[in-house]
Amino acid sequence: MSEPLLTVENQRTAFATGRGLVRAVDGVSFTLERGRTLGVVGESGSGKSVLSRSIMRLLPPNARSSGEVRLGGRDLTAMSEKALRALRGPEISIVFQDPMTSLNPVMTIGAQIGEVLTRHLGMSRKAAKARSVELLASVGLPQPDVRVDQHPHQLSGGMRQRVAIAIAIACEPALLIADEPTTALDVTVQAEILDLLARQQAERNMAMILITHDMGVVAGRCDDVAVMYAGRIVEQASTEDLFRDTRMPYTSALLASIPRLDDPPHRKLEAIAGRPPDLIHPPAGCAFSPRCRYADDLCRSQPPALEDAGRGHRFACWRPMTMEAAE
């Protein structure tokens, strides 16, 4: 079998702060094949956005990063900033969470899409503009020939996110990272944007990492799901396996927090008690143990390793749940 599109090997990213080292990503490894979708799920502060920036190699100056990120056989961690810039756009691109702030307020839509085309594909300005209109049409923006000359403030949130997607797919990247692409949007628009991403991905045969805090988003849209907690992957499986055969209590708690259609109205969503762990002084054992209702002395004293339980279902837990317990 040839090498997967993306290999992340023991990635660690920490930030030096006055209070100490914040270990935002703490030894993450996974692979992603071409054209596949990986969902990365976790609470705020679980390190999933930092992971996405570690893959893009877009880290602030005070970040300490180690590990290996291989994209199409090349080790991104060993590349110069200049070489990386040439990759961002044509090979790997990203859609951010908040479309209200991720577009430049003083540049036209056309200029923001067009510069990617002129920079990476060497198009003329005129060709870039024509191509921008096509891209806008393909992401379902009405009146693309008018919108191309407008500024972001003239567009709604959903429309802006469509523009952001158009920018991300402009150079047909092999890998698209969507970092909470629908969190800031109205509920009615969320499904449209997710469907658009799925359609673009299928059409262009891109691999996608879909980052979200919402288990409901990954269901049915991702091939695989990785659950992150305290900077580590705590459970990873095919979406089907994960939903059917949940092993990690944390995953189970995340699943319980999805509102269901058949819920009685105003049912209180089940929430996970306790706070996410302090990433400067993480708990000695399993990071989730202080909040886990099954935790015992072993959980609190020794960190469990991420182990494969067959069929690519990996989890890190001393007291994995059985199917019955998950019900």
Binding site: R85, R88, P90, D98, T101, S102, N104, P105, E115, A164
Partner: peptide
């Protein structure tokens, strides 16, 4: 700002 982060993610040079 986020739009500067996006510009970086688009592979734009620092000068640009």
């Amino acid at each position: 700002e986020n739009y500067i982060a996006l510009a970086r993610a688009k592979g734009m040079s620092d000068a640009r």
